[in-house]
């Protein structure tokens, strides 16, 4: 899969390269954890087991949806570093809120970037999807790009859709 924009309906001016750097920087700032991006195939993507996803939608003259999917363990690790708590101290609410807040921050970064290209979007309230082995799917030509990030303990699947 190319790092560049796979589909670019309406010339969205959002590149996979920008997204990757922004996402890794956000995770690093919020958690102190370094993530690497790995290349993946469609088969890898379909085999990814998501248990919790943070989702944000940006709406306006163009619309974008960003989903960040991971396992509960990955989410627990991320949130524990975010707030400086032990994993055992985290509640369900902490996990739900933390994952959606990461999506919120990513959405904000994309929103700011798009505004520099003259595209003004509204950021909607982020939300969380939970459930073993769930999969966020899309119609053809709506998925802008998909990226997988990881370190030793965490894997995150990021999807960006142009709605």
């Amino acid at each position: 899969m190319s790092d560049d924009v796979m589909n670019n309906p309406g010339n969205l001016a959002l590149s996979g390269f920008f997204f990757s750097n922004a996402f890794k920087d956000i995770i690093r700032t919020m958690t102190g954890l370094e993530l690497m991006e790995e290349k993946m195939s469609m088969e890898d993507m379909k085999a990814f087991k998501a248990q919790i996803s943070g989702v944000i939608i940006l709406s306006g003259e163009k619309s974008i949806m960003i989903s960040l999917s991971m396992s509960f363990i990955a989410a627990t690790t991320l949130i524990s570093f975010m707030i400086g708590a032990q994993c055992s101290e985290l509640s369900d609410e902490d996990l739900n809120d933390g994952v959606s807040e990461i999506a919120n921050v990513v959405g904000g970064k994309i929103k700011t970037k798009m505004s520099l290209s003259g595209i003004h979007l509204n950021i909607l309230t982020p939300f969380t999807i939970k459930g073993n082995d769930h999969y966020i799917t899309q119609r053809d030509k709506v998925l802008l790009f998909i990226k997988k990030f990881h370190n030793n303990d965490i894997e995150i699947l990021a999807k960006v859709f142009a709605l």
């Binding site: 949130i79 975010m82 809120d97």
Partner: peptide, 12 residues
């Protein structure tokens, strides 16, 4: 802030 996580970070 409507995020409990953000409020916990702020507490630090």
């Amino acid at each position: 802030d409507d995020s409990t996580i953000i409020r916990k970070i702020m507490r630090a």
